[in-house]
Amino acid sequence: MAATIKDIALRAGVSVSTVSRVISNHPRISPQTAKKVRAIMQELNYHPNLTAKSLVSKSTKTLGILLPKQADVLLLNPFFTEAMRGIVSYSTRAGYDLLMIGPPSNGEELEAVIRIVRGKRVDGILILHSRVNDPVIAYLQKDGFPHVLIGRSEEYPSTLTVDTDNVAAAYDATHCLIRQGHRKIGFVSGPPNLVVSRDRLEGYRKAIREAKLPERDEWIVEGDFLQESGFRAMSFLMGLPDRPTALLVTDDIITFGIVRGLTELGYRVPDDLSLFSFNNISLAELANPPISSVDIGIFQLGYTATHLLIADVEGRSVADRRQIIPHRLLIRGSSAPLNPRVKG
């Protein structure tokens, strides 16, 4: 006969309510009591009926993660896997499960979110990217459903968000290239409908204008967060009669595509073109040459976002609804002082 919660309580010498609190990871239960109760649960092979418990408490102890694209494309960019590492780290510690919310075949993210929310399958939703005029955030705001955004919402400033100051980060990285003597600096952006792309373009332009450097529309190229975008951007920019001597690139993965293309064409980084990138994924330091990159604390973005969402779900007040993770510049071999041989 399967053990019950009463059996656990009797064996541990505690009340049934105490066992229930241990199962729910209640913060007021001492570590010693929790350890003792869990040991007895394991000994008696007891597994709580979480479905029945959720019907009583009206809590699923599950968080939804809205994926920006289909999973096979998503996993090509380490930004999302590192953010997921932070999310999993905190959610596991807090006793929450995770449910991936992928858009259906027609790509309608809103449809998937409405289905999950109305089905009461999660207690809150983590959104991994911020878009301009995002219908998902509009729906969640109107419904009053707990959610947190990794990024920034232009239309809903009261949204709970965790972000990098991308304007300041792009300004700092561009200014670093300026200090190295570059006067012709281009920018390779992400999709224009993403807030992060707009913010980094704004920071780049701010630095260029303050330094009174040439601002050329053809030196700004848009793409996706994939190597192929970097390859295409490199092919276009290096074919210009008056090309940049340095590039600020909005993602390390795009930078890898640029380096690959330059190498195939016989160019050298940074001798022929300096590169400064974003995200500081683990492979950036191992590249040849190592990539100069803005570390935006990807793990901490995911970890902090999960912490804030769970606090909101559990009714704990969140004083600062927009939290900023500090950035830092890591200057490596891909960016260097302007080569006198390069026409700058």
Rank of each mutant, 00 (worst) to 15 (best):
5 I>F: 07
7 D>Q: 07
21 R>M: 13
25 N>K: 10
26 H>R: 03
30 S>F: 01
31 P>Y: 00
34 A>M: 05
34 A>C: 08
38 R>W: 13
40 I>E: 06
40 I>L: 08
43 E>W: 10
44 L>T: 04
44 L>N: 05
49 N>V: 06
49 N>A: 08
62 T>E: 07
63 L>G: 04
68 P>R: 02
75 L>S: 15
85 R>F: 13
86 G>A: 01
91 S>F: 02
96 Y>H: 06
99 L>E: 05
104 P>T: 10
104 P>V: 10
108 E>L: 12
110 L>C: 11
111 E>M: 09
117 V>C: 12
117 V>S: 12
125 I>A: 01
131 R>Y: 15
135 P>Q: 10
137 I>Q: 00
138 A>Y: 08
144 G>F: 12
147 H>Q: 09
149 L>R: 01
153 S>Y: 00
153 S>P: 06
154 E>N: 14
162 V>F: 00
163 D>V: 03
164 T>W: 00
165 D>A: 09
166 N>A: 11
167 V>Q: 14
175 H>M: 15
180 Q>L: 11
181 G>A: 01
185 I>G: 02
186 G>Q: 01
190 G>S: 07
193 N>A: 13
197 S>V: 05
198 R>Y: 09
203 G>S: 10
203 G>C: 05
204 Y>T: 02
206 K>W: 08
208 I>T: 10
210 E>P: 13
210 E>W: 14
214 P>H: 13
215 E>Y: 14
216 R>Y: 11
217 D>C: 06
221 V>D: 00
223 G>T: 03
225 F>K: 02
227 Q>D: 08
229 S>H: 00
233 A>Q: 03
234 M>D: 06
235 S>T: 14
243 R>F: 13
245 T>D: 07
246 A>H: 06
248 L>V: 10
248 L>Q: 02
251 D>G: 09
256 F>I: 11
256 F>K: 04
274 S>G: 08
277 S>K: 02
281 I>V: 15
285 E>D: 15
286 L>R: 13
286 L>K: 13
293 S>G: 08
294 V>T: 06
296 I>H: 01
297 G>F: 00
298 I>N: 09
303 Y>G: 03
303 Y>F: 11
304 T>I: 07
308 L>D: 06
309 L>R: 00
310 I>H: 00
311 A>F: 03
318 V>P: 08
327 H>L: 08
328 R>Y: 03
332 R>H: 00
333 G>K: 07
335 S>E: 10
336 A>R: 03
337 P>D: 13
337 P>R: 11
342 V>D: 01
